[in-house]
């Protein structure tokens, strides 16, 4: 790693000032992505702004009115283990649990995961399925944006220089909401996802009131299967309907071929896994 200057602000304001002073300065969170890139000289920042000592960026709050607020610097392990997350968003706990290994989860932050925007990630798809938003701050103010639009493409977000993700906000789930996250690996159990499928299903009796299906790790950003979601609204999710939604999911994605699978294979997997997730959610309903 090349030498760099490390700034250690204690307040969010100080951090934002530092970032405003130097457009090239990089925020440092858990470092699990950044340090790897720097070690391989793929990134050579001259100045890092360490976010770990800023209390305002830490912690998880839950209220049944406003939902979940996860400070951007919360580690993935903390999210996975947090009682409110496990109670109200078990699938988010699962999507965090399946990230990497326990050592990485103890370091990696949720904000870092989203800001880094690596397409082979687990939490983003689930968070989008849950309608999560990100809160962003810079010296010139604060804005909020749905995660869905925040992620622009591989390694690209709407973050401007000087901006920080401060919180991840997840609205409270409607009563009886079903949710699932399914990570599929093609190689070692420890691998990053080849495909991840996130489902969030709101019910009215046995019919679907609203559905979100998001496919992660396949295209450069998580893909919402909007057509499939619309098909489901107001209907009972029969196996035939589920098959149809799964078909829409397969045509909605534009898979990236890599060492984990070819585009054709990934497309096929998307269909299978979306069907399985939906069947799983529905079975859960009837059970």
């Amino acid at each position: 790693m090349q030498p760099f200057e490390l700034l250690q602000p204690r307040t969010l304001e100080d951090a934002l000032d530092r970032l405003a002073d130097d457009e090239e300065a990089r925020p440092l969170a858990g470092g699990t992505a950044l340090v790897v890139l720097m070690k391989h000289a793929l990134l050579r920042p001259e100045r890092l702004v360490n976010l770990k000592r800023i209390p305002a960026l830490q912690g998880i709050d839950w209220s049944s009115e406003t939902g979940l607020r996860i400070g951007a610097l919360t580690t993935i392990r903390e999210v996975e283990q947090h009682q409110a997350v496990r109670t109200w968003f078990p699938a988010l706990a699962e999507a965090c649990h399946v990230v990497a290994n326990v050592r990485i989860r103890n370091l990696a932050t949720l904000g870092g995961n989203l800001a880094h925007a690596d397409y082979q990630s687990d939490p983003p798809a689930m968070l989008i399925a849950l309608g999560a938003r990100v809160r962003i701050r810079s010296v010139s103010g604060e804005r909020e944006e749905p995660l869905e639009t925040f992620l622009v493409s591989g390694y690209q977000t709407t973050l401007e220089p000087g901006e920080l993700v401060t919180d991840i906000l997840v609205p409270p789930p409607t009563a009886g909401r079903r949710m699932q996250y399914l990570k599929f690996t093609t190689r070692s159990a420890e691998d990053r996802p080849c495909v991840g499928v996130a489902v969030s299903l709101g019910l009215e009796g046995t019919a679907c009131r609203d559905l979100r299906v998001v496919v992660g790790a396949v295209s450069s950003t998580p893909v919402r299967v909007a057509e499939g979601e619309e098909l489901a609204t107001g209907k009972v999710l029969t196996p035939d309907l589920i098959d149809e939604i799964a078909g829409r999911a397969a045509s909605a994605v534009d898979p990236i071929g890599d060492v984990r699978g070819s585009p054709e294979y990934k497309r096929r997997l998307v269909q299978v896994l979306v069907r399985r997730s939906l069947l799983g959610s529905v079975t859960e309903v009837s059970a």
Binding site: G31, R77, V102, R103
Partner: peptide
């Protein structure tokens, strides 16, 4: 008390 990969932690941290 928590396991981490010491190859990815900055000494300063």
């Amino acid at each position: 008390g928590r396991p981490v990969s010491s190859c990815l932690v900055l000494a300063a941290d």
